[in-house]
Simulated assay, not measured.
Amino acid sequence: MIFKNDSLDPAAVFACAASLRDACDQAAKLQNLSLSDAFNGMDQFYREAMRIAALFEEWACKHVVFDEMCDVWPYLLEDKFGAACLQRMSVEDLKYFDAEDCPDVALKLLLPLHYQDAPRLPLDVKAINPIPSSHFTHWRIQTIRCLSGDDNFEAMIYGDDPFDPDYEPSILALYGVNAEGLVEHIKDFDRYADAVAFVSKIAPGVEFPEEPVVSASGASDG
């Protein structure tokens, strides 16, 4: 296969495709499913596996924070990528895999990701309050959402599907955190930059990261 994007790592693409092939082979045996019938021939199945592999690697190059990873990238993909894809969708539905599926697969792989507002990822970031006389010792910006038809918001945590159809679109909530760790809701925002700009006005000198990272380790300090 000739890659149109020179930035793609052929080893990573091959690892993704091999992992997906092995996971599909295993699932097909368990389900008594013919991959050839499901994809109108094995050649088409392999084309789909390579398409998905290249698509995910291209997405990962833009969104994964590789500097915060300990694993060797192709080895991680070879071990876990196929299973993560089949957690996202069935073998038969892989032909519909597109860029919207990449964030959820990345979260299933526990990858550190650059935060983005669309689709909104499960952000949870804290910063020390530089105002010593304030009731709050920290500020916290966190992704929250509610079930469709419900008014009770809950934290969107790492691993939650950003496109879960059972939920309303998520938002960002700004909280003040006191010395006892109790939180007080301040205001909601659609964009991370707007939340940072707002808290910077009421707490000049606060240092939230310009490009926050979404990780499985939970809330991070700015």
Rank of each mutant, 00 (worst) to 15 (best):
M1V: 07
F3V: 07
F3C: 04
N5M: 11
D6K: 14
L8I: 06
D9K: 07
D9R: 13
P10K: 00
P10I: 00
A11E: 09
V13Q: 02
V13N: 02
A17L: 04
S19D: 04
D22T: 08
C24H: 05
C24V: 04
C24D: 06
C24I: 04
Q26Y: 05
Q26G: 05
A28M: 08
K29L: 15
L30G: 15
L33F: 12
L33Y: 11
S34T: 04
S34M: 05
L35F: 04
D37Q: 15
A38I: 05
F39H: 13
F39R: 10
N40K: 15
Q44K: 15
F45T: 10
F45G: 04
F45R: 02
R47F: 11
A49R: 04
I52G: 01
A53Q: 01
A53I: 09
L55W: 00
L55Y: 00
F56K: 02
E57W: 00
E58P: 01
E58R: 12
W59Y: 15
C61L: 13
C61R: 12
K62A: 15
V64D: 03
D67R: 11
M69T: 10
D71F: 13
W73F: 07
Y75F: 07
K80W: 03
K80C: 09
K80F: 08
K80H: 14
A83F: 02
C85M: 03
R88M: 02
M89C: 14
S90A: 09
V91P: 06
V91N: 09
E92T: 15
L94S: 10
Y96G: 01
A99V: 10
D101F: 02
C102K: 03
P103W: 02
D104T: 09
L110E: 10
L113W: 09
Q116A: 06
D117R: 04
D117S: 15
A118D: 14
A118M: 09
P119F: 02
P119R: 02
P119C: 06
P122Y: 02
L123F: 07
D124G: 10
A127G: 08
N129W: 09
P130E: 06
I131F: 03
I131P: 00
P132H: 01
S134Y: 09
S134C: 03
W139T: 11
R140H: 13
I141S: 05
I144Y: 09
R145W: 14
L147V: 14
G149A: 08
D150T: 12
D151I: 13
N152W: 11
F153Y: 15
F153P: 13
F153D: 12
M156Y: 07
I157P: 00
Y158E: 03
Y158S: 11
D160W: 04
P162K: 04
P165V: 11
Y167G: 07
S170E: 08
I171C: 08
A173V: 11
L174F: 01
N178A: 08
E180K: 13
E180M: 05
L182P: 00
H185C: 06
D188P: 06
R191I: 12
Y192H: 05
Y192E: 05
Y192K: 04
A193F: 00
A193I: 10
D194P: 11
D194E: 15
V196F: 02
V196Y: 01
V196N: 05
V199F: 03
K201N: 12
A203M: 07
P209K: 08
P209H: 06
E211P: 00
V213D: 13
V213G: 12
V214Y: 05
S215L: 02
A216E: 03
G218D: 10
S220A: 14
S220P: 03
D221P: 01
